[in-house]
């Protein structure tokens, strides 16, 4: 049932694909982190943006990432935006999680006491300066664990990119499976890879959380 020789044989191919998975994860999360922060900040600085942003966030969070990936990849060309699969995939995954991250940042901003804004006004700091130097440094640390959880969630959704043939882990496993008619080893190995990475990240997040709690106990 389980062929160790075969498992070993496909390991280098899977390892190469794992690098793509990690690339997608990191780039996607970078987009999610920065765009999410921009969205959350926009809602505070320009109150009129709150309604359109929350609508967009609702729309993104209510529909499957898979469809969003297809949308960007297939619909883009109709608007003159032709993306290769990898770019479309990273963009879609980044946008999807930007919606989630913006809500996390928003909770972080709301956890900063109003008095901090008022004190900044009393010191005649500008609004942008207040946001950048006073609010964000206080709002981010408590939400780092929540953001970390979304990093793990994003990581676990990267196999969806196999639907548009991005050569990440899952696609690689599927190809091995269809060529050799052996699905057991490749898919189990992919599963194990995700399990190990997720458990390790969960452990790391707990460590970070404990560290933050020690330093920023309010």
């Amino acid at each position: 049932m389980w062929d160790w020789g075969f498992a070993l044989e496909i390991l280098p191919t899977l390892a190469k694909a794992a690098i793509v998975t990690v690339q997608v994860t990191l780039l996607g999360f970078l987009i999610a982190l920065s765009l999410g922060l921009a969205l959350a900040a926009a809602r505070i600085m320009q109150p009129w943006t709150a309604v359109p942003i929350s609508l967009a966030v609702e729309l993104i969070r209510s529909t499957p990432l898979l469809i969003q990936i297809f949308f960007l990849y297939f619909v883009g060309p109709s608007f003159g935006l032709t993306l290769d699969a990898m770019t479309a995939g990273i963009l879609a995954i980044g946008l999807h999680y930007a919606a989630y991250c913006s809500e996390v940042y928003r909770a972080g901003f709301e956890s900063v006491p109003r008095g901090q804004w008022e004190a900044s006004v009393a010191l005649n700091l500008g609004r942008w300066t207040t946001l950048r130097d006073i609010i964000i440094p206080q709002a981010i640390p408590p939400v780092v664990p929540a953001l970390g959880n979304y990093l793990v969630a994003l990581f676990k959704e990267t196999p969806l990119l196999s639907a548009i043939a991005v050569m990440e882990l899952m696609q690689s496993a599927k190809i091995i499976g269809s060529q050799t008619f052996r699905y057991n080893e490749p898919i189990t190995l992919v599963g194990l890879f995700f399990l190990v990475m997720s458990l390790a990240s969960a452990w790391a997040i707990r460590r970070v959380e404990a560290g933050i709690n020690r330093r920023y106990r309010r």
Partner: peptide, 23 residues
């Protein structure tokens, strides 16, 4: 709980659909 939270939903589906027949 750990296995199903720790691996991807898609991997789980593939495993149930393609790997379970092996067993």
């Amino acid at each position: 709980i750990e296995i199903f939270r720790g691996t991807s939903a898609l991997v789980q589906l593939f495993w149930l659909y393609f790997v379970l027949p092996v067993f």
